[in-house]
Nucleic acid binder design. Sequence first.
DNA 1: CAACAAGCTGCGGGTTTACGCAAGACGGCG
DNA 2: CGCCGTCTTGCGTAAACCCGCAGCTTGTTG
Lengths: 240, 240
Amino acid sequence: MKVLIVEDDPLHRSYLHEAVNAALPECDTVIEAENGTAGEKLARDHKSAHIVMDLQMANRNGIEAARTIWKERPETRILFWSNYSDEAYVRGVSRIVPDGAAYGYVLKSASDERLKLALRSIFIESQCVIDREVRGLQQKSLGQTNGFTDSEYEILVDIALGLTDRAIAKRRGLSLRSVQNRLQQLYDKLDVYQSAGDDHEDGRFNLRARAVTVAFLRKLLNYSALERAEAELQEWLEGK
Amino acid sequence: MKVLIVEDDPLHRSYLHEAVNAALPECDTVIEAENGTAGEKLARDHKSAHIVMDLQMANRNGIEAARTIWKERPETRILFWSNYSDEAYVRGVSRIVPDGAAYGYVLKSASDERLKLALRSIFIESQCVIDREVRGLQQKSLGQTNGFTDSEYEILVDIALGLTDRAIAKRRGLSLRSVQNRLQQLYDKLDVYQSAGDDHEDGRFNLRARAVTVAFLRKLLNYSALERAEAELQEWLEGK
DNA sequence: CAACAAGCTGCGGGTTTACGCAAGACGGCG
DNA sequence: CGCCGTCTTGCGTAAACCCGCAGCTTGTTG
């Protein structure tokens, strides 16, 4: 059995290497990549079936790398190992995992034990292992109970990118008014009003900009999500 | 000699610990904190004069911790050790370093050698050591050649927070029109127009929101900068 | 001192946002 | 089928935003 590690921090890389060796005696080769691009290439060359992937990497982040890898070989097992449990990451990952694929999401702050257990469960037993803390988010974000609908998230991203209402309408195939409806919905859920209305009429917020900020502070959005969205936007702009 | 390490990742913490031991034989005690708050407390209790500080930490980030530490004892020597060379961090640090203080800024990607050298230079020789890559940013950001003026940066932060023009005017003691002037300046520098005007009138951007995004993508802003700014804003709001 | 650049300010007006109101469209459900 | 909730759309309006124009205050320079 062969395991591919994709992680840009050398310290974490060697830590992972050791953990894999310790947890998986049946693993005879470990190869390493230090960014997403290299990871994709190695995965392709070696037809890797077992991958441990960092999410936040400079060159090309884990989500994008995983997406192309899964596109080529959907049965690949990937353990995401990340510092953060931002909703943006969680949403990003669950958006790209193929049906029935075995994968995992473990936080870097988890114990050795937990990591090793996850390695075995995913790579050997083909189970899905999602860190408890992350799991909570996933429920919330996918179930529409407390969290955000896809359409709300979508429009959040759109204004975060800086599109006008009209541009959003065109992009999403809606009328101007519908876009604005969704915006209102979003503002509502993000609680942009309370801080806005406050008391006097001086301290008012620009709802649109404020919504983005609040989303950021709540980790609904993060750098990598923005980056991805921006890339998609550019693509769309070219496709006219 | 005593050294305090403030770093939330255990791996990096122990790596630093070893590096300090190797580079500074005159150091007899190393103490560790795993977030900014604990770091401040330890620094106070031990009257630490030599600190290695991570910038990005969950609880309370390095910049804030450093600020309060320096406020109490400005001659403290601090080596910032960070993953990133975002302009937002660089600006944040150079904004708080006291006159004549010895400090350093080294990237985590630097070699062992470089780190050890920096440790000795700062703690023993009282020199300032700033990583080359970071240095470049610093020049650009403080010198007004290519980068952004303080007032431009300020207004960038303000719209990122989601303030209205009027609110900004009030906060900064300017007229409405002046605020808008600065905004134009900002839009100009951020190149928000080209992508906006493009060609047809469909793909237009909302300048204000777009500016924030572009700043984010260019790492002029980042999460921690936003977080800090938000805290300051709240403070201001309460002070009326 | 005159000349000039840089920043602040008010005025005016075109565009975009935010949103109430109300009329359809679509899908369950008794 | 009729009732109801959710989603979409158009109309209209008040506010906010973007910005050209022009007058003022500074600080700098020859």
